[in-house]
Design a protein around this nucleic acid. Structure first.
Length: 378
RNA sequence: CCGGGGAUGGCAGAUCGGCUAUGCAGCGGACUGUAAAUCCGCGUAGGUAGGUUCGACUCCUACUCUCCGGA
């Protein structure tokens, strides 16, 4: 089980400092939870993830169920031992894949809408490779095309075998182009699944319920009331918020205000650098995001000078560290010129160096924000 | 010298008498609970000189270069 203690509340915002105790150690919040979908922070070892300052990681139920299967992980001693990360772990429930492999894939959209789309997901519609119904979701495996059925009981059973400290209720992340009727019906289903997830859990893992409701303020409020009133150990805030960052932050605040203050709040899948102060000020304790690791593998380093695309020719002759203001081992050792060469030569070391640095950069940034809360400046 | 084959974008390499080849490299963009070391977009062609044709990178002639074989 977990214990959560709020150690300081900001006077000027909803931001707060906290200590999240788990069977595998204590996490200082707010914190970024880097994504380790397949039981690894892509390109890094667990020791390296730790050295980059990561406190807790989040792995994925759907992907680990496919490969290698939860029984293999369990036979390896559970997720912590399997990946030799003897620190706090979360697993996501597979609810995001209902969207990402469903309507997200069909329409080529992510959870944040970048441009106006003509398509709309209407009540009664089904994604092409997935069937969502009352009882659960039938996926078509992106690996081999076989059918995979997931529902609350299945997802929880898998997550219990994986053995993370914190697990999530099975939900449906709705598409940003879903209309209100679809979103509302999906929300009601997600609420029912939340109760079923709670009922299914037999372990002493912490279980977080997930608030949905899309960009619809009244649905978000209703969801926060419903999920917040259930016996979860903490809460995830999921789904989409439309295409407006200000709207996103205001929705998060509405949700946070409905949730029990003594329980931890995890914001699912949001965490671009510019979002982080805003979501922390909105009262988020933990949040996961693929940005630092994903951008790294596409050649981008986050620095105190902004995002740098190391594949650009200009960096080939740049003798500075990746970020002169960074204290990480990559910045203490290698220059932009070398990293740029590795990126352009498609050497895997480039991806490792950028992933390590980006995580260190994000973690340092969040640590700095914690310090600001401590000093009453945030 | 004789015979034969070739000459296509920065490189590699197809097709076609009229309609974007493609890949790599280059350049630009995207990326928010990871089907992502990925995806999207852009530029640059037809050895030289003639001829046939409404129209030639594609057919014909010569030349240049090149490769293979023979002397």
């Amino acid at each position: 089980m977990i214990q959560f203690r709020v150690t300081k509340e900001s006077a000027s915002s909803r931001a707060r400092l906290g200590l999240l105790q788990t069977p595998h150690g204590t996490v200082e919040t707010p914190t970024l939870v880097p994504v380790a979908t397949q039981a690894t922070v892509k390109t890094l070892t667990s020791e390296e993830a730790r050295a980059a300052g990561c406190q807790m990681l989040i792995a994925n139920t759907f992907h680990l169920h496919l490969k290698p299967g939860e029984d293999i992980v369990a036979a390896g001693g559970g997720l912590h031992e399997f990946m030799r990360w003897r620190r706090p772990l979360m697993t996501d429930s597979g609810g995001f894949q209902v969207f990402s492999l469903g309507f997200g894939r069909d329409h080529g959209v992510g959870k944040i809408l970048k441009e106006r789309r003509d398509e709309v997901v209407l009540l009664g519609q089904q994604p092409s490779r997935i069937t969502i119904n009352h009882d659960g979701v039938e996926f078509t495996s992106p690996v081999d095309g076989r059918k995979i059925f997931l529902n609350p009981a299945e997802s929880i059973a898998i997550q219990e075998k994986l053995g993370a400290d914190i697990i999530f209720a099975f939900d449906e992340a709705t598409s940003p182009i879903a209309d209100e009727a679809y979103t509302k019906a999906s929300l009601e289903r997600t609420h029912r699944w939340a109760a079923e997830s709670l009922a299914a859990k037999a372990s002493n893992q912490a279980l977080f319920g997930i608030i949905q409701g899309g960009k619809f303020t009244h649905l978000r409020k209703q969801s926060a009331e419903t999920i917040g009133g259930m016996a979860f150990d903490g809460f995830g805030i999921g789904g989409e918020y439309g295409d407006d960052k200000r709207a996103m932050v205001s929705i998060i605040k509405i949700v946070v205000d409905e949730l029990p203050a003594e329980k931890p709040r995890h914001l699912l899948g949001i965490g671009h650098l510019e979002d982080i102060p805003e979501i922390i000020k909105a009262g988020v304790d933990t949040f996961d995001c693929i940005a630092p690791t994903h951008y790294a593998r596409h050649g981008t380093g986050f620095t105190s000078e902004g995002k740098l695309d190391l594949s650009k020719r200009q960096f080939l002759t740049d003798q500075q560290p990746l970020d002169p203001a960074c204290a990480c081992s990559v910045c203490g050792t290698y220059k932009r010129s070398y990293i740029s060469h590795l990126v352009r030569a498609k050497e895997i070391t480039a991806l490792r160096l950028l992933t390590f640095h980006n995580l260190h950069f994000f973690n340092t940034y969040v640590a700095h924000l914690r310090e600001q809360i401590r000093q009453g400046k945030l």
